[in-house]
């Protein structure tokens, strides 16, 4: 049971953006994907999340093939994500931002939603309660009614995280989750990610920050020029000459 990329490739016309990438993200573990700027990380993310057509290879979530599935079905297969550049719903309150995360689990019929029947109202109330519980866990209960667009950067990141968790995913893809954060904030998130993995969620962590990745991940993949150049335990990977070459002049953090 894992999120598996099998021989994944992407070509734009004649240009190869990814070639034969094999990645396995097991449940309950944090798997890292690193690489210098322009290594092709974003292309991989876009293919997994259904934003970009796959040229070759397959992507599977457990036993479900999501290679050609549209973005919404990928979520339904149990894979949630956060975005590299924060994307919240700025007009909505923090609570409403999280409520939308429960969409995958809403069961009431379209008709009862249209007519405002008790089933729909009960469901909305239940989702609210769960959203409030999440807010409590993240220490943001007091901000529930604030418009999400006016929050600080760190809080917006957490709203995004809560929203992804609300969909109760089996796997979660974190696209540079600590970009722009200070050490205190990122340490707090590290603890949180550890907790998530311990609760059985498989995490694919795409990061720039090598220190952060080596501290958290059991297994790391290194991407350069669209190809995997190394994989394995953090210490082994970081002493790999190919990886050092790729990162020379890059941002050693």
């Amino acid at each position: 049971m894992a999120l598996v990329l099998d021989n994944l490739s992407k070509r734009f016309g004649g240009v190869v953006a990814s070639e034969n990438v094999n990645i396995t993200v097991p449940k309950g573990k944090i798997t890292g994907l690193i690489g210098p700027n322009g290594a092709g990380k974003t292309t991989i993310v876009n293919m997994i999340t259904g934003m970009l057509a796959v040229s070759g290879g397959t992507i599977r979530v457990d036993d479900t093939d999501i290679t050609r599935a549209p973005a919404d079905q990928i979520c339904r297969a149990g894979l949630a994500r956060t975005f590299q550049n924060i994307r919240i719903l700025p007009e909505n309150s923090v609570l409403d931002n999280i409520l939308i995360g429960f969409h995958r689990h809403e069961r009431c019929s379209t008709l009862s939603a249209l007519l405002g029947l008790p089933a729909s109202r009960r469901e909305t109330a239940a989702m609210r309660a769960r959203a409030e519980a999440l807010l409590e866990r993240f220490g943001m209960r007091h901000l529930a009614e604030y418009p999400a667009g006016g929050l600080s950067y760190g809080h917006q990141r957490r709203v995004e995280m809560m929203r992804a968790l609300a969909s109760e995913p089996e796997y979660i893809l974190l696209d540079e989750p600590i970009a722009g954060m200070n050490d205190v904030e990122s340490d707090a998130l590290a603890v949180l990610f550890r907790d998530l993995a311990d609760s059985g969620i498989g995490i694919l962590l795409i990061e720039h920050n090598l220190r952060f990745v080596t501290r958290l991940c059991e297994h790391i993949y290194v991407l350069d020029g669209g190809r995997l150049i190394a994989e394995g335990a953090p210490e082994a990977v970081l002493s790999d000459p190919a990886v050092l070459t790729a990162y020379v002049g890059g941002e050693h953090a």
Partner: peptide
């Protein structure tokens, strides 16, 4: 006030977010 309204709001404000949450 229903799941439909929430989905509409999400789509209007950011389609990528809505899709990533299964909408």
């Amino acid at each position: 006030r229903s799941r439909l309204g929430r989905a509409f709001d999400a789509i209007r404000q950011n389609e990528a977010v809505a899709a990533s949450l299964g909408v």
